[in-house]
Amino acid sequence: MARVTWEKTDAAKDFLAQGRQTERLKFLVGGVILLGLVLYLAFSGTLLGARFFITIDEVLNDPQFAGQTVRATGVVLGDTIVIDESSDTTIITFTVATFPENHPNLAEALHIGATDPNATLMQVRAVGQPKPELLRHEAQAIMTGTLGPDGVFLADELNFKCPSRFEGDAPVMGQQDHPGMERLDNAS
């Protein structure tokens, strides 16, 4: 019995190769469009969503951030906190002092910031936000918003941080808890 074989003619081969090229072109065009879309989205999103995380001094004094939505941090001064709940919308105002940078201990940094007589101060106002549980004296405020023409920072978003008793410390022994300390005290 004769063996039947089928071979592609040159014309068929050319046709297939041409088809593959067309498909490849489609893939290429599709890929470029998708890549362009992603890059455009990422670029425009970054422009709109990027917030410089700056100090209070920069918010108040650096003209490049004027009118921009920025993120800033400061130490809350407790006696300036006013929460107006008389209307339908809560209005929170308080003043923050410069937050000392690069301090390893949060509690100490907050205390230094709150008691520094030379610290820059900035008034903050937030409208229509829930009363933050951690808004208190010597809390670290992390605020997103814009500096108004009156020098008051209008915060769209407020976050607060306090030294937590749930993080990091070690137990402390009083004199009565270890005889050695007593001996040392007596000796001196």
Binding site: L48, G49, R51, I54
Partner: peptide
């Protein structure tokens, strides 16, 4: 040398079309 954080607006623009 300045830290930038990306707000939720970025994700609201970028992720829905994808």
């Amino acid at each position: 040398g300045t830290e930038v954080t990306i707000g939720v607006e970025y994700y609201n623009i970028v992720t829905p079309p994808l």
